[in-house]
């Protein structure tokens, strides 16, 4: 599997990271080097092995249905760029 410019651009789009056109080839090279290296895994036989999805705790604990936080709009908004309290804002979105 080898990444080309277009794939790098598509992945960067998915990850919402701007990559300028003149960076694409260099980045594709770097990413390919890493991907070629991780492909060593293909040599490991894993037929019938269940993927490991949990490490420590074997089951999700439940929390009680009680309200423990809220009414803290100031704290929630304190670090916000360009807030219009009590709202966060972003450049206008057209749906």
């Amino acid at each position: 599997m080898s990444l080309d410019r277009d794939t790098v651009a598509r992945i960067a789009g998915l990850a919402r990271i701007r990559v300028d056109a003149d960076e694409l080839d260099g980045l594709a090279g770097e990413l390919n080097a890493i991907l070629n290296w991780v492909e060593a895994l293909n040599a490991v036989p894993t037929d019938g092995v269940e993927p490991m999805i949990a490490v420590g705790a074997t089951r999700a604990p439940f929390r009680d249905d009680v309200v423990t936080e809220g009414d803290q709009a100031d704290a929630v908004l304190k670090n916000a760029p360009d807030p219009v309290p009590p709202f966060f804002t972003v450049p206008k979105v057209i749906e």
Partner: peptide, 8 residues
């Protein structure tokens, strides 16, 4: 009220 029922 907006953003009053918001946990971290």
């Amino acid at each position: 009220a907006p953003n009053s029922h918001v946990g971290f």
